[in-house]
Design a binder for these strands. Structure first.
Lengths: 396, 396
DNA sequence: GCTTCTTTGTCCTGTGAGTGGAGAAAGTTG
DNA sequence: CAACTTTCTCCACTCACAGGACAAAGAAGC
C-alpha cells in the first residue's frame, strides 16, 4: 500500500491538518470558525487536501437545524510510529493521524548494548505491531533517546549514559530501515510534548516537565515550543549541584542531583538500608528478588515502611530544592513530574511541593500547579508521534 | 513639531524598518538583497514608507560602476527615550531611530522613594535632554524597572525591592506625561536586549545576561526572544538557594544567592571585614567615606588587598555555582555578566568561569563564552529604546 | 566623444491568492 | 407546505506579487 506522499502546500493547509489532528473531525463550517479564512478560500484549501488524500470526507454529521455537514477528517489509514528508548526499556507504539494509540508494546533492554542491538529490537517491535494488523506501513516515525541530540540532524551527541551512540546517525538509519521520514529528540522533550498534546499540559504555554527515571532530566517548553538549547543539552538537570560535597557522581563531580535521587540512586540507597538492617520490609524484598528497584521502594512505602518513606521524602526534598531554583529562574505556569518514579506518588510530590513553595518567591509560585504526569509510559510515544506529525504537517 | 504617527502597514514594512534600524542606510538594491521580495514589490513598499515619513531618501551614494543609488534611511528626526530605573540611580537617554545614543544622563535616586517622586525625576531628566536640543519631542519611550512586570499592561507586580510600585500603571502614566507610546519591562531584560542589539550578544539566539547590581537578576533570551515567564518574574535568580542554611535574606529564607553576593551584600561583608580589622585598606576607606560600596571593594582589590580579593572570589564562586546550574538547565550559547559590580572585573569573572566550567557538563560548556557586558551602563537604555522601537516597528 | 557594459530604479502586465455576496442544497419547525 | 437555518458552492472582483522590459545614470575602453 502506498504511504503518505503529500505534504501541506502552504501554511493554511498545515494549520488545518493540525486542527484536525488535535481536535478530531470537523465540518467545513467548524473549520471556518477557527482559521480566519473566508469560506470560499477555506473550501479551496480543503478540496486540495482532499485531492492529496491527506484528509477524507466521510459521512454526514447530524443536522443542527439545517443542512447536514460533511465530516472532514485526517486520512484514517495514516500511521505514525512512536519510539521511546529509555535507559532500561523500549516503548514502541502505533498511532493514527490523530495521535491516538492503536497499539503499544514495551520490552526491557539496556541502551548500553549499543545502537545496533537496540535498533534490531526496535525494528522487530515495529514489525510485530505491523504484523498484528494495526498498520500496513508507517508514514512517519518519532524516536526519543535518553541523551542530548543534535536536533536538526537527528544525531545523539556525547550522551553520558549511552556510550556507543555518540554520532550514530539515528535519523538516517531508522529512516532507511522503515522507509519513512524520522525525527529524533531527547526522551524528556518527547515526554513534555506528550503531556502538552494529550496530558496535563494542554493549553499551557510555559512549563517544565521533570522526568525522574534511571536518570533525571527536564523538558522545557517556552511559548509553546520545546527549548533545546544551543547544543541540544538543555534540561540536563541531573548534574546540577544538589548537595555540596555530596555523593560522588558518574560525571566526576560530587553532589549532583542524580547521584542523590533518581531510580538508580534510590535503588542503591534502599539496598544499603536493607543491608544495614534499617528496614525489615526492604530486606525481605532484597532477599526474594536478589536486588531492589524503585518499584520495591514504592511498594514498601505503600506498606507503610518508614525507611522507604524517608528515602522518598529525602529524595523529593533534594529534587524540590533544585526545581525551586528552576522555577525562580524560568517562572513556568506548570510543573509536571513524570518518569519511572511517579509510582512513588503523593509522598514524592508532597516533598517536592513543600520545597518549591517554601523556597521560590510567591509571585512565581502563587498560582503554580505541581502535578504528576497524566499519561505515564505513553507520554513518550505520544510525544514522539507528535514530533513527526508536527514535521510532516508543516509545509515542505 | 509633529511626532511619528504612522506605523508599518504590514510585515514587509516592519521588516524593512528593522533592517534600516539595525543596519543603517541601505539602497533599494541592498534592501532587495535582504528581504526576498521582487524589486517591484519592494519599490512599492519603500514608496509607501516614504509617503508616511517613516523613512526618507536623502542623497545619492557613490557609484559602484553603474547608476548611483539613493540612500534610504529612517527619518532622522525620530527620537526614542530610554529610561533605566535602577535600585539606586536613574539613567535616561535619547536615541535616534537607529538606537544610537545622542545624549545620556544619570542621577542617583532611591526607587523606594516611590513612583511619584521617581517619575518627577525621570520627567525632569527627559526635559533636560529635550532642552539641550537633542529632541523636540519623543516618538516613543522604553522604561525598565528593577522588578517583575506584567508585560502586556506595563505594570510592576509584587516588586520586592520597590514597595509602593505594586500595580502602579507605569506605562499609562508615562505615556500620558510624555504624549507618546511607552513600553515597560524588567531592567534585566532590557540589559539583555541592549547587549543583543549593540553589544556582545549580537547574533546569539540563546543567551543569559546576569546583572549583578544592588540585587541580582538574569535576562533570558531564547530563540532571539526575551523569555518573561508566566507572571513576568522569570530570571529572578537572586533568591535561588546558594548556601544551605546560609545568611538570612530579606525574602525570609536563608542562603539566597542575593544574601551572599550582590552589591549590597558585598558592601555589608566589606564593612564587617573592615570592622573586624581584617583589612587595613577597607578600614581606611570606611574611615574616610563613612560607608563602603562595591566600588570601594573594587578599588581595594585593584590595590591588591587580599581580603577584598577574597570577598570577590567567594562571591564569584557562589554566583558561578548558581550559573552552572542554569547553564546545565538552559544550555545557552553565551553568558553575559553585567551590572554595577562589573567593576570587579577579571577576578569576579575568573571565579564564575571556574565554577561553571567545573560543574556543568562538557557538552554545555564546551563552547560557552562567559564574558563581561560590552555596553556598561548604556545597555539598559539602549535595550529600552530597542523595546519601544520593536513595538513601533511592528504592524499596528 | 562615442560605444559598451554595469548597476539602479521604474513601469507594466499576467497570475494566483483571497474576499464577499448570491444562491443552491439540505435540513428542521410549525 | 411555508418559513427559517445551516452548510456548502459558485462567481466576480480586488489586491499582492513576480518577472520581464526598459529607462536612467554612471564607468571603462577605444
Amino acid at each position: 500500500m502506498r504511504r503518505m506522499t503529500a505534504r501541506p502546500a502552504n501554511a493554511h493547509q498545515a494549520r488545518l491538518l493540525k486542527l484536525l489532528r488535535d481536535g478530531g473531525p470537523h465540518s467545513r463550517a467548524q473549520l471556518g470558525d477557527r482559521v480566519d479564512l473566508s469560506r470560499s478560500k477555506l473550501a479551496v484549501e480543503v478540496d486540495r487536501l482532499l485531492e492529496t488524500g491527506l484528509v477524507v470526507a466521510d459521512g454526514l454529521a447530524a443536522s443542527r437545524g439545517g443542512r447536514r455537514s460533511h465530516n472532514i477528517r485526517l486520512a484514517p489509514q495514516l500511521r505514525f510510529l512512536g519510539v521511546d528508548i529509555g535507559a532500561t526499556s523500549i516503548d514502541v507504539a502505533v498511532t493514527n493521524a490523530e495521535l491516538e494509540i492503536l497499539g503499544h508494546i514495551n520490552q526491557p533492554m539496556d541502551v548500553r548494548d549499543g545502537p545496533v542491538a537496540v535498533f534490531e529490537q526496535v525494528l522487530s517491535m515495529a514489525a510485530k505491531l505491523r504484523a498484528s494488523g494495526l498498520a500496513e506501513g508507517f508514514d512517519g516515525a518519532g524516536i526519543g533517546v535518553p541523551g542530548p541530540v543534535r536536533f536538526p540532524e537527528g544525531v545523539p551527541v556525547a550522551p553520558p549514559i549511552m556510550p556507543g551512540w555518540d554520532g550514530f546517525p539515528v535519523r538516517e538509519a531508522l529512516s532507511q530501515e522503515l522507509g519513512c521520514p524520522v525525527m529524533v529528540d531527547n526522551d524528556v522533550n518527547l515526554m513534555a510534548m506528550g503531556e502538552q498534546h494529550a496530558g496535563v499540559a494542554r493549553s499551557v504555554g510555559d512549563f517544565l516537565c521533570v522526568k525522574i527515571g534511571t536518570g533525571i532530566g527536564c523538558g522545557i517548553v517556552a511559548g509553546g515550543e520545546v527549548h533545546r538549547g544551543t547544543t541540544g543539552s538543555a534540561g540536563d538537570i541531573g548534574h546540577i549541584l544538589a548537595v555540596p560535597d555530596g555523593r560522588p557522581c558518574a560525571c566526576g563531580n560530587r553532589g549532583c542531583l542524580e547521584a542523590h535521587f533518581s531510580g538508580a540512586a534510590l535503588a542503591r540507597d534502599a539496598k544499603e538500608a536493607a543491608q544495614q538492617g534499617l528496614s525489615v520490609e526492604l530486606a525481605s524484598r532484597l532477599e526474594t528478588n536478589g536486588t531492589l528497584t524503585a518499584v520495591d521502594v514504592a511498594a514498601a512505602a505503600a506498606a507503610g515502611d518508614a525507611t522507604a518513606l524517608d528515602l522518598i521524602r529525602e529524595g523529593g526534598n533534594r529534587t524540590g530544592q533544585v526545581i525551586a531554583g528552576l522555577v525562580s529562574f524560568f517562572n513556568p505556569g506548570l510543573v509536571v513530574i513524570g518518569g519511572g518514579v511517579t509510582g512513588l506518588g503523593h509522598t514524592l510530590l508532597a516533598a517536592i511541593r513543600t520545597q518549591v513553595y517554601r523556597q521560590s518567591l510567591p509571585l512565581a509560585t502563587g498560582n503554580l500547579p505541581i502535578v504528576l504526569g497524566e499519561l505515564g509510559p505513553t507520554a513518550g510515544v505520544i510525544g514522539a508521534a507528535r514530533l513527526i506529525s508536527d514535521h510532516l504537517f508543516s509545509p515542505a
